[in-house]
Nucleic acid binder design. Structure first.
Length: 458
DNA sequence: AAAAAAC
């Protein structure tokens, strides 16, 4: 089975091929033909399954017919965070390069002027976070009556963030006869209700995979004391073979402090959290992706969905309060068939949260003792991931082929999803399915996209 | 207990 069997256009197949993809992932195989036929779709899938391409690709072909009119976007993609919206926009640019489609990225924290200008000219695809979209809508800058295609991505996360009322309101502004695609890692009742209300006769696709049966991530625990945490992290960064690391903290203030402290100690480090200005957030992310810095201190804004290639280590400077977040955080490493290391610093006060994590993942995180705790283990088993070992700072651009490979071309632990689903008690499945999968979603490795109504294509 | 998202 190749992409050519899915009914996509030649131009699109060319863009896909040029990006290095050749074989569609299960969700792409199942979703693309249905989306091309105009069907509604519920995709139970997480990042790492090739989810983004499963809607981006058919959308490009659907939108290739017809053209946009001023202030009347033809399609809308809703994302929970600004960074995820930017990541999807990057995918549109990549796969739409042989099409003449226009898009606008409507996210908060950046100037509205350029977004408005793009809307005025007319766009084929609107990629938005709910807040900015509602704002612009309220100002009369957008008419959604011509928007015949809606994608609600990461629906369960939208729920967590309290976006459901906004989503419902947005849905009512769209024409009743439209195609709606909804993606969610889990299906809690409110999401089910949303789907019942706004989708008609949807095709349901479920692609799940055990998150931390993810052997590509070597998980370790370091017992420490709150006062020694900073020294511990510095030791781990120095001693281990840390090529690229994300250090998660529970609080924005801690992110700031730790980032400052690491910088002062000479680490090529940066930070990202929700109190930073949006341009700064994207700039830091870009510096990290291009290798200008190799350590990123982050809040949970970066925990989910973000696909950054070649992260060798994830550190939990704090044990996350919500066990799901643990799985999401460590899922930033061990991506694209590479192996990664996830090290969690835990104090005696963290016992309860640690228990919750171990219960969720169904495994005890092995402790690094004594001398071992001084050195972070190397990611083992490696292929591409060990390549630049001697050189802590990656340079942008050239990357190992396997890392750059498409979701489908990558090595994928092909577990028997459907069989597993049948055999497993529903309860356990739901539990597990709320976790982040081991693998990556479509990459976003380019520079920070210019979010403002970029034309793409030539 | 936090974080995320509009101005």
């Amino acid at each position: 089975m190749s992409f050519a069997d899915l009914g996509l256009s030649d131009e699109l197949l060319r863009a896909v091929g040029e990006s290095g993809y050749d074989t569609p992932t299960p969700i792409q195989r199942q979703a693309i033909p249905s989306v091309l036929m105009g069907r509604d779709l519920i995709g139970i899938a997480q990042t790492g399954t090739g989810k983004t391409a499963s809607f981006v690709l058919p959308m490009i072909d659907i939108l290739a017919q017809g053209r946009s009119r001023a202030r009347m976007p033809r399609s809308l993609i809703l994302e929970p965070t600004r960074e995820l919206a930017a990541q999807v926009a990057e995918n549109f640019e990549k796969y739409g390069k042989h099409h003449k489609l226009s898009m606008a990225l409507l996210i908060g924290g950046v100037s509205m002027g350029d977004q408005q200008k793009a809307l005025e000219k007319g766009v084929d695809v609107l990629i938005a976070t709910p807040g900015r979209l509602m704002d612009l809508f309220g100002r009369g800058k957008i008419l959604l009556t011509g928007c015949g295609l809606l994608v609600i991505d990461e629906a369960d996360r939208m729920l967590d963030m309290g976006f459901i009322p906004d989503i419902e309101e947005i849905c009512t502004k769209l024409p009743a006869t439209r195609q709606t695609l909804l993606f969610s890692a889990t299906m809690p009742p409110p999401i089910k209700k949303l789907a019942d209300k706004f989708l008609s006769n949807p095709k349901a696709i479920e692609v799940s995979r055990p998150a931390t049966a993810n052997t590509s991530i070597d998980q370790r625990l370091v017992r420490t004391d709150s006062r020694k945490k900073k020294d511990a992290i510095v030791d781990l960064l120095r001693a281990g073979d840390v090529k690229t690391a994300i250090i998660f903290s529970n609080r924005k203030t801690t992110v700031r402090e730790l980032a400052t402290s690491l910088k002062r100690r000479g680490f090529a480090s940066g930070q990202i959290h929700g109190d930073m200005e949006q341009p700064e957030r994207l700039k830091e992310l870009d510096r990290f992706k291009t290798g200008e810095i190799n350590i990123l201190v982050a809040s949970d804004v970066a925990a989910r969905g973000l696909d950054i290639k070649g992260v060798s280590h994830v550190f939990n400077y704090d044990v996350p309060w919500h066990p799901d977040d643990y799985v999401h955080r460590i899922g930033r490493t061990g991506r694209a068939g590479a192996t990664g290391v996830a090290i969690t610093l835990a104090t005696s006060e963290d016992a309860e949260h640690l228990d919750a994590i171990e219960k969720l993942t169904g495994m005890k995180i092995p402790a690094m003792e004594g001398a071992a705790a001084k050195a972070a283990p190397e990611p083992k088993g490696g292929r591409a991931e060990r390549k630049e070992k001697a050189e802590p700072k990656r340079r942008g651009g050239k990357r190992a082929q396997s890392e750059d490979a498409p979701a489908a071309a990558r090595e994928e632990p092909r577990r028997e999803e459907s069989r597993r689903s049948r055999e497993e008690p529903r309860r356990a499945r739901e539990d597990r399915d709320s976790r982040e999968p081991a693998l990556v979603d479509e990459g976003w490795n380019g520079p920070v996209p210019s979010f403002l109504g970029t034309g793409f294509g030539h």
